Simulated scan of single mutants.
Amino acid sequence: MSFTHAHQAAMAQQRNRGRCLHHDNGARCDAIISAHSIQKGGQLNLIAEQGHVYRLTADLTTLRSTGGKVQLKKAGINKVSTFRGMCKDHDNKLFAPIDDSPLKFDHEQIALYAYRSICREYFVKENAARSLEAMINHPDVPQASRQLLLDSTQGQNSGFQHLQRHKLIYDAALSEQSFADFRFLVFWSSSPCAIQASGLLFPDYDFLGRQLQDLGPETEALDLLTFFTAPTDHGWAYVLAWHQSSDQTCQWVRDSLQEGICQGRKLEDMLLRLSLACENHAIRISWWDKLTPSAQHAGLTALSVGTDPNVGIPSDYLASGCEGLADWIFDSVQDGAGN
């Protein structure tokens, strides 16, 4: 079996290895399901056309065939954003407040959306780390690629360790129902939506291109920011959310967003860049297809951030690019972030 096929097989094996990531999981968690990290009934249905959306395709085969360039691929909403990281019982009970009700200015709902983002990323990062470790000693790995695999494994393991720490923080907060420990900004919109997303990042640069955290392996603890879209009674919302333990860096992100608006930057542009920097999103097909070739090129450039381990993250990836692409507007904002 070739290296490429072996890598794909290893990734598929990990994706299919279901486990329940609920904070109170146990031996009874045996009915593992393919849970949606972006709601099918609420969020995906807002943008689906004939049951389909665009999603990012950045697998090894695609990157090799396109010279390292990511692509968008049409996909049915039954398969978008799913991960085998929850049992049926825990998924139904834990996420009922967000699956059964539109988003309101509610700390519990915000905490649950953020926790779902954490669980999905935990599942993906753990799979990636294990797959890379399995491939390092594969006999068909070219010698020139072995060091790249070693470097990638080190990076994945480092990121996963930081994520493990935050997963424990979120586990404890939800177990104790400490929903007031979550901070957030909610941007409300009644306009048509083109993107739905659920993601997170360790903020390295803010919306003005200033460095916030060093993501190098020597850093012992990193602050974490989650972001997601959600259906509301009168449209949809874009939310930035974090646990109070990540207050310092996330408040800087919040402040830079406000500074950017004061400088004349468009909120819609800034949040679009953040959405495209996350690989877990779904895009309205007609919106993307109507973009000019230059606009699509700008979008694909934003989508490519972080996909090539040989290319560093540009400091301005949240500060510039994709200006004017978003055709939606935000009507109001509510601040649950405190000071």
Score class of each variant (00 low, 15 high):
H7D: 06
G26R: 07
R130S: 00
L44A: 11
H297G: 06
E268Y: 00
V253Q: 06
L267R: 10
N310I: 03
G324V: 15
G209T: 06
Q154G: 09
D24Y: 05
K93M: 10
G76P: 02
E176M: 09
C322D: 05
P231E: 06
K88H: 08
A128E: 13
P97Y: 02
Y54N: 07
A114C: 02
D59H: 14
A302M: 09
P293S: 08
S131L: 01
A31W: 13
D140N: 12
I283K: 03
S81K: 02
F202H: 07
T61A: 09
A230R: 09
Q258S: 14
L208K: 10
R116L: 11
D289N: 14
Y115T: 08
A237Y: 10
V305D: 09
D24A: 13
L318C: 07
R130T: 00
S189F: 09
Y54G: 05
H234P: 01
G209A: 12
H281T: 02
L240F: 09
D59L: 13
A302L: 12
H234C: 04
F105G: 03
R273G: 15
N45F: 00
W287C: 09
R28Y: 11
R120Y: 09
R210M: 09
I98Q: 08
G68T: 05
Q263R: 15
R183E: 14
F3R: 01
E323F: 11
E220Y: 13
I77L: 04
S152K: 04
H7C: 06
S131Q: 00
R55C: 05
